[in-house]
Design a protein around this nucleic acid. Structure first.
Lengths: 249, 249
DNA sequence: CGGGGAATTGAGTCGGGTCAAGTATAGTGG
DNA sequence: CCACTATACTTGACCCGACTCAATTCCCCG
């Protein structure tokens, strides 16, 4: 664990990360930085951290000291009430940032759990704060990331507050596939990294309802489902579900 | 409207606002600032703006250029889907900040509508950005405000995703009265500034359900309801509703 | 190859939605 | 000041979509 890496073969855990040549740069970093600015940002990213499937990157109650940029893998974030009920608040993938919830009270208020073996960049928050005071683009970028999260959650509230089961699942699938496509994956084929239970928690449904709704979509020829493998056959019809409810107002 | 204010009696619309002696300072500003820092923040708050009941402070689609700190009154924020469905995403009162959603795309993504005649401080966002680069406390404060909003929305997602109607309304009332108490109002008496419809939208319920649930609480002697006047008679029992659902997992 | 979590499917129930009627309250204009 | 209207609220009856409980089936992994 704390042994020095064998000579000639650097320990992957401890080598310096370089945003400057990271393929996810355009996903999690501001655009149009000078070489100097980029180098200083590289300097802030202190380390990578691997997180094995089903283990937590952080848990509610832990002290907050860093934001995390996901390099590979998928996470879920979830909050739990005192009585034990829990709610998945989001699924995050490569290039997305987790940990923003911890800033208010210097303490995480949700769990971030890897759904598959994953790797993140650790970005100590005080360092980010310092640097963003000097690099305006970084400051603005951070504000945008937080604002984007607020807007995303508005969308989830709309979903949870007004949509029926079919609409929720359609919205979920379309959102997932859209984000995957932006990362170079297929726009019709996807592998769910989360269980029906977790999808249900996110969408405010029971796992049986999620399963049944998948089956109904499949029956109607809109998708093909084999366990966690989903193929979207008719994107248009899936989108049309979102516009249905009662024919506007 | 654009007439110069009569001499000797400054136009309340145009006079310089001073955070430094605002009674809401501890609600919407960072603590422990030097006089100099405070003066510079005063300088950023460009103006106040009055917003009449039922009119919008900003609307979805409008260009974003400022955050707004509420001085007096109450607002609701709501998002609307393409098909016209809308969802109230929050109710904001004195000392709270609205407009954070606009940062990502330089454009507001929700409406902020006054529920009673209100007044806000206009805080141009580029000025905030500049100043927060120099005043560390302001920078951190802004981050905390945004993070707090993210955490609040997590709570709403938990409510919408897992709670039954009674729990939702109990949580809503307890939250409202707690925030009012923090502002020096009674901890048992409150006047709702929003309709049953709006409460329902926020809680993911129909207005009839909200009304029925109020009536049930009243029947059971936990609250007294006369239209928008609510008296909380038994806070403990109201809190107990939140811990019920099935007796933990 | 066997064990166990995950997923599917069915039958029955119920909480909250829908539709509708009736009442209270706040504005508005005469 | 009062009548009139619009809007908000309450309440009842009925219905339906999602939940509950339960029984299999399907894989994935050791």
């Amino acid at each position: 664990m704390s042994n020095p890496p064998p000579a000639g073969r650097p320990d992957r855990e401890s080598i310096k990360v370089a945003c400057s040549n990271c393929s996810l740069r355009e996903l999690c970093m501001p655009m149009g930085l000078s070489d100097d600015e980029m180098a200083r940002i590289d300097d802030v990213i202190s380390a990578r951290r691997k997180v094995k499937r089903k283990t937590a990157l952080f848990r509610s109650g832990e002290k907050f000291h860093a934001l995390y940029a996901i390099r590979t893998g998928v996470f879920k974030t979830c909050v739990v009430a005192e009585d034990g009920r829990d709610q998945v608040t989001g699924f995050q993938m490569a290039g997305e940032i987790v940990g923003l919830d911890g800033i208010v009270n210097d303490q995480h208020t949700c769990d971030a759990v890897a759904l598959e073996d994953s790797e993140v960049c650790v970005m100590p928050f005080d360092r980010i704060g310092e640097l963003s005071r000097e690099v305006g683009a970084l400051q603005h970028h951070l504000h945008r990331v937080m604002s984007r999260e607020i807007v995303r959650e508005h969308g989830v509230m709309l979903l949870l507050g007004t949509m029926r089961a079919e609409e929720r699942l359609a919205a979920f699938l379309l959102n997932l596939v859209q984000r995957l496509q932006a990362r170079g994956f297929s726009r019709s084929e996807l592998v769910l990294r989360m269980t029906r239970q977790e999808i249900g928690s996110y969408l405010g449904l029971k796992l049986e309802t999620v399963s049944r709704t998948f089956s109904r979509f499949a029956e109607e020829g809109m998708i093909e489902v084999h366990q966690r493998h989903v193929r979207i056959v008719d994107t248009q019809r899936l989108k049309a579900i979102l516009a249905q409810p009662g024919g506007s107002f």
